[in-house]
Design a binder for these strands. Structure first.
Lengths: 191, 191, 191, 191
DNA sequence: GATGAATGAGATTTCATTCAT
DNA sequence: TATGAATGAAATCTCATTCAT
C-alpha cells in the first residue's frame, strides 16, 4: 500500500452529519484493527461495524489507504498540538524540558490507548514519506523550537537531539504497549 | 494474521538441497518486502523471486505467516546469540555494560541492514505472544544475567531495567532505519 | 469435505434479486455435477455456468461445501414435505401405506430427475451427521407417524420398519437412476 | 474422475514383494478414506500411511483413479466369488435362494466393514461404465444363474428380478453402514 | 527399484471497489 | 445520499505427477 493514491477525503465535512459519520468510521476502524488485525481489516468490515454501508464509507474515503492515512493523521495531529503547547515557562532546563515532553507524549498516548495500539499495527504499510511531509516535520519543528528555549544548554545540532529524544520515547512507548497487549509475559516491541 | 496457525516448518531440511532452498526463500522474502512492501508480499512473488515454484515454498512453509515468522525467528536468534556472548570481563560498570549491549545490538543490525528494515515492516502483523515464548524471553534473560554482573550498581527490578534499555535502543534503531530508508527527509519511526 | 465448516447461507435472501440468484446457482450446480462430475465440480465452473461471478457465489454460500449442502437440504425438504402429506385416509393397511409411500417417493424423484442423479454423486462427501440433525429425522418421523395409523398391523419397533422401508426404496431408486444414466448396459448402484 | 485413463496396474505383481506392497497400499487407502474423507484422499497421504514414498505408489498404480479402481475391483471380486459359490443344493425355493443370497452378501460386507464404508465414499467419483464391464455383469450373471435353479417359480425377466433383489439388498446395506458411521442417531443413506 | 524434492496448473476464497436502484 | 449486490483480479494453498539421484 505504498503506492501513490489520492489520500484526501472525498468531500469536505461541511455538514455536521458528515463529521459524525467520519468519526464513527474512524472509531470503528480502530476497533476492527484491534479485534481483527491488519489483514482482516477490510472496508466491508469497517462499514459493518460503523453501521453504514460500504458505499457510504467510500463516499468519505476514496480508498482503503486514505482511511488508514486519516487515522494516522488524526493521531499525529494531536501529538503535534500537544508538543506545540508544551509550557515554555521558566525554569526551562534541559531536564525539565525532557520531562515536559515526556509528559505531553505520554498524556496523548494514554488518552488514546486503543488508537495507539491500532496504529502500531498499521505502521508497516503506510506511505512514510508523505506522512513526513504532512506531519512529522511539524513534530520535529515543535521540539526544536522548545529546545531553543532551553536555558542551561546549547546544541550544535538540535535536529539530532530532537530525533534522539523522540525516538527513545517512541521505543519505550511501543514496547510498553506491546507488553500490555500480549500481557502473558514481558514483551518487547519488535527490535 | 494474528490467528493461530501452524508456524512450524513443514519438513526438516534433512538434505543439503532443502537447506539451500529454504535459505534462498528467506533471502528472497527480505528482498520482496524491501522492494514491494508488506501488502505486495505474496507467496507467489516470493517463490518467483527465489526461482522456485510456489509448491516448493509451501513444502517448507505451511503458510505465509509461517514464512514471516521464520524470518523473525532467524533474526532474533542472531540477536539473542549476540547478547548471550556479551563480554563480562571487568571493569563491568553499568555504563560499560550499556555500551557493550549497544555495540552488540548495533553490530547485528548493521550486519543485517536489509533484514532489519524488512522486519520492521512485518512487526505489526505477527503473533507477538508466540514470539515472546519462542525468543523474547531469551533476549530478556541474557540482558538480566549481564545486569547481575554489574559491579557499580544494584537493581531492585532488573526486568524493568532490561526492558528500558532494550526498548530505548530499539526506538533509536527503528527511527534510524526509517530515516535512512526514506532519505528524502528526516523521518521518524511511527510513534 | 467432512470437516465442520459453516454451512449456513451467508445472507438472507431478503431481496427478490438475491432469491433469483440463489436459485440460479443451485440449478447451475446440478447441471455442473451432471455434466462434469463431482471432481470437476468447482465453484468457478458453477459461477460461470450460472452467469455470475465467483464473488457473487461466495456472497451467498460461504464455501463449496455449503453449496452442496444447500442442494441436499432443498431436495430432502421436498421429500419430507411429500412424506408429511401422505394421505392417511382409510383403508390404511400396511400394503396400502407402502404403496402410498413409494408413490410419494417416486413422485419426488421423477419430478426431479437431474437433481436426484446429481445428488447421488455428492452422497459420499457430505457431513452425514449434520444432515441427519437437519432433515433425516424429519423423514423418519413422518414415516413413523404414518406407520402408526396402519390398521392391519402393529409394530414393536416402528423405527426399524421405517428404516427398512425407506432403505429398500432408496436402494431401488439409486440403482434405477444409475442404470438409466449409464444406459450402455445394465448398471447397479455401487453395492 | 470419470475420464478415461489407464486403469491397469503398471506392473504385474510377479514378485511376492510387489504383492505385499500393493496390498499395503490398498489397505492404507481404505484407512485414509475413512479417516480423512474423499477430498483429503491424496496419493501422498496414502503413500505416507503405507510407509512408502509417493514414487513407489506410482510404480504400482499409474494414477490416483487406478488406485481407487483397484480398491473397488478387489471388493467386487470378493462379492462375485461369493455369489458364484452360493450353494445350489435343494430345496431351492425362491425364499431360500433369497436368504442364501442375503447371507452371501452380508458375509462379505461384514467381513470387510472398513472397506465397505470406504467404498461408499468413492461411489460418486468412479467410472461406472467401465466397472460394469469389468465386474457388475459378473454379479448379475451369478444371480441370474442361481435364479434359474429355483424350483418353485419361473420368471419372464430374470434380469429385473436379479436387479431388484440386489438393489434392495444394497439399499439396506448402505443405510446400515451410514447409520453405524454417524451413530449419533438413526441415519439413512442418501435417498 | 525406491525416494522425495520440485513442479505448476488449478482450486478455493477474499476483498477493494463500483454502480444501479 | 445511502445502499448492498455484483464484480473479478489476485491471493493463498493443494496435490497429482515427474524425474534426478
Amino acid at each position: 500500500m505504498n503506492t501513490t493514491k489520492r489520500l484526501q477525503p472525498r468531500k469536505k465535512p461541511a455538514q455536521a452529519r458528515s463529521k459524525v459519520t467520519i468519526d464513527a468510521i474512524l472509531t470503528a476502524s480502530i476497533q476492527v484493527l484491534l479485534r481483527n488485525g491488519l489483514d482482516k481489516f477490510t472496508t466491508t468490515r469497517v462499514a459493518e461495524r460503523t453501521g453504514v454501508s460500504v458505499g457510504t464509507l467510500y463516499q468519505y474515503f476514496p480508498n482503503k489507504e486514505a482511511l488508514l492515512y486519516a487515522l494516522l493523521l488524526k493521531h499525529f495531529e494531536m501529538l503535534a498540538k500537544s508538543f506545540e503547547t508544551i509550557p515554555k515557562a521558566p525554569p526551562m532546563t534541559l531536564e525539565i524540558l525532557s520531562l515536559r515532553l515526556a509528559d505531553a507524549y505520554i498524556a496523548v498516548k494514554m488518552a488514546n490507548v486503543d488508537e495507539t495500539k491500532a496504529l502500531y499495527m498499521v505502521a508497516g504499510s503506510i506511505n512514510q514519506s508523505r506522512l513526513t511531509k504532512d506531519i512529522f516535520l511539524r513534530l520535529d519543528t515543535a521540539i526544536i523550537k522548545a529546545l531553543e528555549s532551553v536555558t542551561d544548554a546549547r546544541f550544535e545540532d538540535t535536529q539530532t537531539v530532537s530525533f534522539t529524544l523522540l525516538s527513545a520515547l517512541a521505543g519505550l512507548s511501543r514496547s510498553t504497549f506491546a507488553r500490555e497487549t500480549a500481557n502473558k509475559s514481558r514483551n518487547l516491541a519488535l527490535n
